[in-house]
């Protein structure tokens, strides 16, 4: 392995990492919002909306992100909706992630005994106050491991962004290999940069998990 080449390529990978993180976090934020709203709809069993959420989950969980991105990127312009590659990436990640987040939040919400809801209602709180102040904080704390797994999964899924010519880590590696054929160096850097991105999340996540489970409720 040629270290000069590694050093030469480093800035390219660094730029790609920032792009991946930027699109990744915005997509994941969207996924969180979709997850919260969708799981609340399922929690309250709101008619019609409940069915839409169900369709969303099945649609996005059971098709590959690659196909979803192609659909957003190439099919939407046909009906007059133009999206940039970056928006397409965020949207795709958000919609896919949303389906997973809804399910994760929902399992957390279902784990809280009904009588906690009744206790809050009997204090005169309305349905939303009960969800927001009483049920959701407990549900999120239970869901942390699942949410964390989703975040890592979604950041890894960004590797298919290269197919809609976003210059993410995967794109950069493939591009460099195609041009200069330094396959080993390029793949080595690719692995290292994915680890740089994801390992801290794993570690910080594990700490958060412990705090949420044991710290917050008093030991």
């Amino acid at each position: 392995m040629n270290t000069d080449i590694l050093i030469e390529y480093l800035p390219l990978y660094k730029d790609a990492l920032f792009l991946t993180l930027r699109i990744g976090w915005q997509g994941i934020f969207l996924a969180f919002v979709i997850g919260l709203i969708g799981s609340a709809i399922l929690h309250f069993k709101i008619p019609v909306l409940k069915s839409i959420v169900g369709v969303h989950i099945e649609l996005f969980r059971n098709t590959p992100l690659l196909v979803q991105l192609f659909f957003i990127y190439f099919a939407l312009p046909k009906v007059g909706i133009q999206v940039t590659a970056e928006t397409c990436g965020k949207l795709g990640l958000g919609l896919l992630g949303g389906a997973y987040m809804i399910e994760t939040f929902r399992s957390g919400l279902e784990a809280i005994p009904t009588i906690q809801t009744e206790s809050a209602l009997s204090l005169g709180m309305n349905d939303f106050q009960t969800l927001w102040h009483v049920i959701l904080p407990q549900a999120v704390s239970i869901s942390v491991p699942g949410l964390l797994a989703n975040v890592i999964f979604l950041l890894k899924e960004t590797s298919v962004f290269s197919t809609i010519s976003l210059m993410d880590l995967m794109f950069t590696a493939k591009d460099l290999i195609g041009m200069y054929a330094k396959t080993i160096e390029c793949l080595f850097l690719l692995v290292v940069f994915y680890l740089i991105m994801l390992l801290p999340i794993s570690i910080i996540g594990a700490i958060v998990e412990r705090r949420m489970r044991y710290g917050q409720f008093g030991d």
Binding site: I115, Q116, E118, S119, H133, V134, P137, Q138, S141, F217
Partner: peptide, 10 residues
């Protein structure tokens, strides 16, 4: 007031 207290644990 409930049999199982139902304080909010968080």
């Amino acid at each position: 007031v409930f049999q199982s207290y139902e304080l909010f644990p968080h």
